[in-house]
Computed example of a mutant assay.
Amino acid sequence: MNTTRKIGNLLLAVSAGVLAVACTENEETPELAQSEVSIVASVGSSEADPGARTTNLVYGNFEISDIKVSLDNVKLILRGTTEDSNKPSIVQIRNNSPQLLTLIEDGVIYEPIIGTAMAYDGVYGKLDFDLVKTMEVPVDDEMYGLSVFAKASWFGIPAEVSIDLEEEVNVMFNQGVEVAGAQDLYLTLYLDKFLEGVDPNLVSDGNGDGLVEVGPDNVDGNGEAYEAITANMQDAMTLKNGEFKKDKKDKS
């Protein structure tokens, strides 16, 4: 009986010690706050007020009527600090799920939701995403094989801009975006930056078919304009917090 009693006491002591350690660890590592964050696609102008909604679709000699973008692998990156050492540094918004976004259609601006995820509260300083070719549509669809497609009027002549880039885009925001409660963050394409540096003398309806085409195939001889626009993609993207939400349209 004495031996049995000693073993029982020993087990009780061990159990109590394990419980005490577990309680201490729980007290030392409190649950970290998280908030629901939605990434919303939008268009804007770099010259407009930060909270202003875009209504102007005329930039230079282009009057834009349609823009579609295909993207994937969207990640919000936490700005690392000592206080954030226990937090995952990456919030995966979209992964291996290409999305075709309609930003403008027939002159109407839309703000489609890219994705929603729980993010640890903190300051985020970077958003990464991949431009990807659209392959999940019929081969005769205007977006097939493209990552960006735009329709516009150029000096009154119909025009199309077709981009087939597949690359990672890194959107940096030096001041950081603070997450401390549910909110929308706007991944915004600045239309003036998108078309920046496109000299009117570089654009023409080279084959005279009544359609100005700017694209990788250089059908109209607008190769320099295509290179200028594709070089703008990185700087044309920015991230805003949700200052403007009223009357937004959602189309994905």
Rank of each mutant, 00 (worst) to 15 (best):
N2L: 15
T3Q: 15
T4H: 13
N9F: 13
S15W: 08
A16Y: 04
G17H: 03
G17N: 09
A22R: 05
N26D: 06
A33P: 04
A33G: 08
V37W: 00
E47M: 08
A52H: 05
T54G: 05
V58L: 14
V58D: 12
N61C: 11
F62V: 03
F62A: 11
F62E: 00
D66H: 05
D66K: 00
V69D: 00
S70H: 04
D72K: 02
N73M: 05
K75Y: 09
G80M: 11
G80C: 07
E83I: 09
S85A: 12
P88F: 00
P88V: 02
I90C: 02
I90R: 04
I90M: 13
Q92S: 15
N96P: 03
Q99Y: 08
L103H: 02
I104M: 03
V108W: 01
I109H: 06
G115V: 07
G115F: 06
T116R: 09
Y120D: 01
V123I: 15
G125L: 01
G125Q: 08
K126D: 05
V132W: 05
K133L: 13
E136F: 12
E136L: 14
E136V: 10
V137Y: 14
D140R: 12
D141R: 10
E142G: 09
L146R: 06
K151Q: 06
K151P: 03
A152W: 01
S153C: 09
W154N: 08
I157Y: 13
I157W: 10
A159V: 04
E160Q: 11
E160L: 07
V161D: 05
V161E: 01
I163D: 02
I163L: 07
E168K: 14
M172R: 15
F173V: 10
V177D: 07
V177P: 00
V179G: 02
A182S: 14
Y186S: 07
Y186H: 09
D192S: 06
K193R: 10
F194S: 03
F194Y: 08
P200L: 10
P200R: 01
V203L: 14
V203T: 10
S204E: 13
D205P: 11
N207Q: 11
P216K: 02
N218S: 14
N222Y: 05
G223S: 10
A225T: 13
A225P: 08
M233E: 04
Q234M: 06
D235P: 02
A236W: 02
L239R: 09
N241L: 12
G242W: 09
E243G: 11
K245P: 02
K248T: 13
K248C: 04
K249H: 08
K251D: 07
K251I: 05
